[in-house]
Design a protein around this nucleic acid. Structure first.
Lengths: 200, 200
DNA sequence: ATGAAATATGAGTCATGTTTCATATTTCTT
DNA sequence: AAGAAATATGAAACATGACTCATATTTCAT
């Protein structure tokens, strides 16, 4: 979709991948605007012109990366939470998966934050599509009495805010993984905040 | 601190203010990297060279603005919450004040988010100093039995995450103010999540 | 093996934007 | 009123970086 030319040979696929890896690395290290095409191509060991075989312009790689990584993250969360027995367990597992993914792909994380200033639409889409999934899940949990009847839209943004800022603190600022104890603390907050606690 | 020359005359102060107003406006509309010095100076009706009387370079206005606006926001929250009777009321009032300020200064809000890619240290300082204040308040509230004993550092980032993402959704994405009903929903979440509810 | 399609090259073009500086004007001080 | 200090000017120097294109090489299909 954001690709100018789908590669036709394995050689082409390798080059495309080198471009994407280099771009992800450099964008996350130096930011979008401080990374030049020449930076990307020399990191990938290719000539500047080669870049334009696969992408029409600089913004396109950026969009491609966000799309690609966002998709990967959603897939991962889905597969990790498929066996969960309750919405609470799902939330817990989803959050752990999010932090793990972010630790492994600091690139994605930083790229998304910058997207607001590169392409506001793709930035908005990214969070809105996450929010939609959340809302769907929250409504189901409210219907079967697992969750309190709070506005799903507001709650979805609260939950995204929590994960993103906790990730910001531990992963970006401190350069660590988010410790399990911290996740437990957050889950306590969330549990009594939006879940209905059973007394059995 | 980030100023190259403190103005000596009222004429100088006026020019400095014109530069800051223009920069805040343009940074928030188009982002830091898409705003040129020439954009700023022509918006301010001054010559490009005049800019360099007050700032050493482009980054300096940016730092100056963050510093200035962050200070203003903290002052406002402090003055608005000074008469609050409980930590809960303080949290509620503080959140309302935050949203109000952000609505009036979308500039600050967007500028801070971009700071991660312009100057990571100033970005980190901004949130860390907010966190510090929060931690201080949270610890006091825990000691007098108003709040549950959850990790203050984690909770501070949760609360900042919630306000920032709710602001993102309503103010940036939707271009509205955050409705009171939404604030009430969030406060319910927070109340049962981290406060100890009295039964009287 | 050979022509066509795909991929790669990198010097060069073009546009943009930051910053400097010699000069000019205004304001302050006495 | 006059010299000093502050402020303002904008053309030009300098730097950077996105993108193009004529040409070359590699891979593929037959």
């Amino acid at each position: 979709m954001y690709l100018a030319n789908e590669p036709k040979t394995s050689r082409g696929y390798e080059t495309l991948e080198k471009i994407c890896d280099s771009a992800e690395k450099l964008f996350s290290e130096k930011g979008y605007y401080n990374t030049s095409i020449t930076d990307i191509t020399s990191q990938a060991n290719i000539a500047p012109g080669t870049f334009y075989i696969y992408f029409n312009d600089k913004k396109s790689v950026f969009q491609y990366l966000i799309h690609d990584l966002g998709h990967e993250l959603r897939k991962k969360i889905k597969s990790e939470t498929v066996n969960c027995k309750s919405r609470y367990e799902e939330e817990h597992k989803g959050m752990k998966t999010f932090f793990k993914f972010v630790s492994e792909h600091i690139g994605l994380y930083k790229i998304i934050w910058e997207a607001q200033f590169v392409d506001i639409d793709i930035f908005k889409d990214y969070y809105e599509s996450f929010s939609q999934r959340y809302i769907h899940n929250i409504e189901a949990a409210q219907e079967n009495g697992e969750m309190k009847n709070l506005d799903p839209k507001a709650i979805s943004y609260c939950l995204m805010g929590i994960s993103n800022f906790i990730g910001l603190k531990w992963i970006i600022f401190e350069g660590k993984e988010v410790p399990d104890e911290v996740i437990d603390q957050i889950m306590q907050f969330i549990k009594s905040g939006i879940f209905i606690e059973k007394k059995d």
